[in-house]
Amino acid sequence: MKQDALVQATAHHVEQLFSGEGSGHDWFHIKRVWQNAITIGQAENADLFIVQLGALLHDIADWKFHNGDEEAGPRAATVWLSSHGTPTPVIKQVCQIIKEVSYKGAGVATNPSSLEGRVVQDADRLDAIGAIGIARAFAYGGFKNREMYNPTQPPEVHATFEAYQKNQSATLNHFYEKLFLLKDRFTTATGRQLAEQRHVYMQEFVKEFLQEWHGAEDVPVAFVV
Rank of each mutant, 00 (worst) to 15 (best):
Y164G: 03
F175W: 10
H199S: 14
A195G: 09
Q35R: 14
Q121D: 00
A61G: 04
G105H: 06
A137H: 01
V108K: 07
G130V: 08
L17M: 15
A9E: 11
H58A: 01
V200F: 12
K166P: 00
S102I: 01
G133M: 04
K99P: 00
I38C: 02
T160M: 09
F209V: 08
E21D: 01
L48R: 07
G133W: 06
F209I: 09
Q197E: 15
Q35T: 13
E208H: 10
A131V: 10
V219H: 07
H214T: 14
L57H: 03
S113A: 11
P155G: 08
V224P: 02
Q52K: 12
L194C: 03
M1Q: 12
L57T: 01
V51I: 10
G54M: 12
E156W: 02
Y140F: 15
S102Q: 14
Q165N: 08
I30E: 02
A61D: 13
I129Q: 03
N67K: 11
R136S: 06
F18M: 09
A37L: 07
L179P: 00
Y164H: 15
K166Q: 15
L115V: 13
S113Q: 14
Q96E: 15
E15V: 09
G191N: 01
D69F: 07
K207W: 03
R75Y: 01
N167I: 00
I60M: 04
R32N: 14
G133A: 07
I40F: 09
G142T: 07
D184Y: 02
W80Q: 06
L210E: 03
F180P: 10
S83F: 02
T110S: 08
L172R: 04
N36P: 08
E177N: 09
I98W: 02
H158Q: 11
V200K: 12
D69V: 05
V94G: 01
W63D: 01
L56I: 05
G20V: 04
T190Y: 04
I97W: 03
E100F: 07
V14L: 08
V225W: 05
G133E: 06
T86E: 10
A159Q: 15
Q35L: 15
L182E: 04
P155E: 07
R185Q: 15
L115N: 11
V108F: 03
E21H: 11
G142M: 11
L181N: 06
D184N: 13
D69E: 05
N173F: 08
R146E: 06
